[in-house]
Design a binder for these strands. Structure first.
Length: 259
DNA sequence: ATGCCTCCCCGAGGGAGA
């Protein structure tokens, strides 16, 4: 089973690039972030014309996540538990059953800039809720994949110029520690297992020729529960998508599983 | 490198992103 994550930075602006990537990558499951659309306006045909089932958790203008699969999406849940007053659409999860059932979570973790400030407080509070929910997911002792835009640069080697990010909400010590606390529950960062080493980026800013200079950061991740890690076959970043017509500023990351 | 783009809203120009 091939599971992919893609921050598309606007579903309406990315219909062509996304469809082209789906035809080449052919993921069995894909989670999307920053759809920037309400559910009713989502161009479902991108997926349904290719035989995918689709569940969206949209929001007007900002944020918004979705999950699509060529198999049925079971037990769909929207929203990260832990704060009923949180109206930002940043979490969706569903179970996909191949030869094994996998609980697939798609997440769009808050950016948090400027830091410090209320947006940074929201990011850290959201990560506390993620930690709590991740514990619940682990208790199932089933394969769980938490994939998405974490807005976290885990290590200095995950940025071309780490010094430029020292004060940024994506790289501040509190941010990285909160990410590490989730990993330390027993999750595996799929890319670091399959493709260890520096310079593997998933985001390049539109500005200042960042892509041309390969001035990127790795902020899109796939965290696997122990039961999912046991099934892991491969994990890669589809870097070439950044060179396509009207690209997102992120590229897809995917992993394959014996399931 | 505290924003040189691009997205969204809409029908101008501001908010948001990372």
């Amino acid at each position: 089973m091939k599971i992919a994550s893609f921050n598309i930075n606007g579903i309406k602006a990315r219909a062509e690039a996304l469809g082209s990537w789906l035809d080449r990558a052919v993921p069995d499951v894909v989670v999307l972030q920053e759809i920037k659309s309400i559910d009713a306006a989502f161009p479902r045909d991108i997926f349904e014309s290719r035989g995918y089932n689709l569940e969206t958790h949209g929001q007007k203008s900002f944020n918004g996540v979705a999950i699509a699969a060529r198999l049925p999406l079971e037990d769909v849940s929207r929203g990260l538990p832990g704060d009923d007053s949180d109206e930002q659409a940043r979490w969706i999860e569903a179970t996909v059953v191949g030869t094994r059932a996998i609980r697939v979570c798609g997440l769009y973790l808050p950016n948090g800039n400027p830091a410090p400030g209320p947006k940074y407080d929201y990011k850290l509070a959201w990560m506390d809720r993620l930690h709590t929910h991740a514990q619940t997911l682990l208790q199932s002792e089933e394969p769980v994949v938490m994939a998405g835009d974490y807005n976290i640069i885990p290590q200095p080697q995950d940025a071309k110029r780490p010094d430029a990010w020292r004060e940024d909400a994506l790289f501040r010590p509190e941010s990285r520690a909160a990410f590490q606390r989730v990993v330390n529950l027993g999750f595996t960062d799929a890319l670091t297992v399959c493709r260890p080493g520096p310079g593997q980026f998933t985001f390049w800013d539109y500005q200042a020729g960042a892509w041309a200079r390969d001035d990127g950061i790795r902020i899109d991740h796939m965290l696997l529960s122990p039961q999912a890690a046991d099934l892991l076959q491969d994990c890669q970043i589809d870097k070439q998508e950044r060179d396509m017509e009207r690209p997102s500023d992120h590229v897809p990351i995917w992993a394959t599983f014996d399931a």
